[in-house]
Design a protein around this nucleic acid. Structure first.
Length: 477
RNA sequence: GCCCCCAUCGUCUAGUGGCCUAGGACACCACCCUUUCAAGGUGGCGGCACGGGUUCGAAUCCCGUUGGGGGUGCCA
């Protein structure tokens, strides 16, 4: 309060503290974005601290994955706002030293009970957890002994920018472990000590950490510091309304990138989960960066909706210039070429068809598949579509007459359309319906991009060849 | 069990006591456009969890109920 009335002594410092135990989580990405928006707008600093203290589960190769994932969503390590990455494991000595300080001034004590002993005694005494049994034993450090925080009497009020004041009765908080029996620091301790050391002013993280907050706030105070500004943003949940997790949901940011979601679409979508950018939800990053405020963040969990993400992505794809689109789809086109060594990829034709692809695709990855029939030696016939084609009235005659007309007409999409429309009309059919056999002959399917445009690019010889080769049409010509 | 959080269309949200006959977006449905499929356009369906208060007036404030979620580790 007092601080807010004066000019800030230092610029605000934000942080994200992911642990390298897997791919980068979309929820972590949203939290990062919120922190990043504030750091950028307020001229502050965004610290990346990788919390790699769980030796059992950590894998060093994930570290680069975190940095790459952040870079993908526009949080670049070479931006002056960015600081780090720091690796928590390198500060273990300092964490232990601070814990000793807590022990020295009586804020923490050693306990020699094992988990089993605690469980047994709790059961015997009818209490739920560890009830401070070693508090007054005056134990010193020793093998197998954990260091516990002496939770003071009273209550702890957490002032949260999105939740308001949250009060915890300290009696409901057990004396939590600071140092393990092997002397290594626990998350609660390491996290706070690092935040203190790195002069973090704002801790913005997911709501799952709210129950940890009173403990951490007590730690900040016991360590002799003013707690930071807290803000707990709503969880991202799945269809069952449960926190999305690695085990049951697709949460890896990288997988969306690899499936052809655009970074700006993902960023835009993520920002709207728990926050609204205003009248128009499709917004460029800079606009959201300027508008974002923790006070406006919603309190209730948000469903991570793939369908809406896809809609955002489609909107962003359609907003690209054709050149941008062609360049952006290249990685997936390259994959397609690799998977089809016998195909004759034609970059000019792909580019020429791109405006049509753009308005159909919801991901970049789908792009080659929309027009792949053009480059394959033969279309891949869909059985159902093939029978649909032959179900069209006068199908055989339609194909035969189309072959005849295409042998001589001008080779432009307009001329082909005019010729075919005339044929369809002569049979008393709507062109759209009569087109099915022709479309299947050329593309293998009844649905796809505009036909005449594709045929013009394919060339007369190839189109006639495909028309004559339509499976089931052998008796016609 | 205990602690904590949350509660507006199916979903994401706007809404901070009268501008609400509750607005937008996604999804869904219909129609239009149309060479298929899309895209685009127009329209439709659909919601303040419930019960008490407070108030001249409540989606908005208070209490309770119910429901959902998170936490409850020598994980982070």
């Amino acid at each position: 309060m007092v601080r807010a009335m004066n000019a800030p002594l230092v610029t605000p410092r934000f942080r994200i503290a992911p642990s390298p135990t897997g791919y980068f989580h979309v929820g972590g990405a949203r939290t990062a974005l919120y922190n990043w928006a504030l750091a950028k707008r307020l001229g502050g600093t965004f610290v990346l601290r990788i919390e790699d203290t769980d030796a059992e589960r950590n894998r060093p190769e994930w570290n680069q994955g975190i940095i790459d994932a952040l870079a993908w969503i526009g949080i670049h390590a070479d931006d002056p706002t960015f600081e780090g990455p720091y690796f928590q494991s390198q500060y273990a000595e300092h964490h232990v030293a601070e814990a000793q300080r807590l022990f020295a001034n009586g804020a923490a004590y050693y306990c020699d009970m094992t988990s089993d002993q605690i469980q047994e005694r709790a059961k015997a005494e009818g209490v739920t957890g560890y009830a401070g049994w070693s508090r007054e034993l005056g134990l010193g450090p020793g093998p197998g002994r954990v260091l516990r925080f002496r939770v003071p009497e009273g209550s702890t009020v957490v002032n949260d920018l999105v939740r308001g004041e949250v009060t915890f009765d300290n009696a409901t908080i057990e004396d939590f472990v600071l140092l393990r029996g092997n002397g290594s620091p626990m998350f609660l301790l390491a996290n706070v000590v690092d935040d203190v050391t790195m002069r973090i002013s704002h801790v913005i993280r997911a709501e799952e950490h709210l129950p940890n907050t009173p403990k951490q706030q007590m730690l900040w105070e016991a360590l002799g510091h003013e707690p930071p500004v807290w803000a707990h943003v709503p969880l991202l949940v799945n269809e069952q309304r449960k926190k999305i997790s690695k085990r049951r949901d697709k949460v890896a940011l990288e997988s969306y990138r690899d499936e052809g979601y655009r970074a700006d679409a993902m960023v835009n979508y993520l920002m709207t989960l728990g926050w609204s950018p205003g009248d128009e939800e499709i917004q460029p990053w800079v606009a959201m960066q300027e508008a974002f405020a923790l006070e406006d963040v919603a309190k209730s969990p948000a469903f991570f909706d793939l369908k809406k993400l896809a809609a955002f992505n489609g909107t962003y794809i359609r907003a690209m210039s054709v050149d941008e689109f062609v360049a952006a789809t290249e990685p997936w086109c390259a994959q397609w070429r690799e998977a089809h060594p016998d195909a004759m990829w034609n970059a000019e034709q792909f580019a020429a068809m791109s405006p049509f692809i753009q308005q159909r695709a919801t991901t970049l990855a789908e792009a080659p598949g929309v027009v792949d029939f053009m480059f394959l030696p033969n279309p891949q016939f869909d059985e159902k579509d093939l029978s649909k084609a032959w179900a069209v009235e006068d199908a055989a005659a339609l194909v035969a007459e189309t072959i005849a007309a295409f042998e001589t007409c001008d080779w432009t999409d307009e001329a082909m359309k005019a010729a075919f429309d005339a044929i369809a009309e002569a049979h008393g059919l709507k062109p759209g319906k009569a087109q099915a056999p022709i479309r299947v002959a050329i593309t293998g399917r009844t649905v796809g991009p505009p036909l005449y445009e594709a045929m013009e690019l394919l060339g007369r010889d190839e189109v006639l060849r495909r028309l004559r080769a339509l499976p089931g049409s052998v008796h016609v010509a």
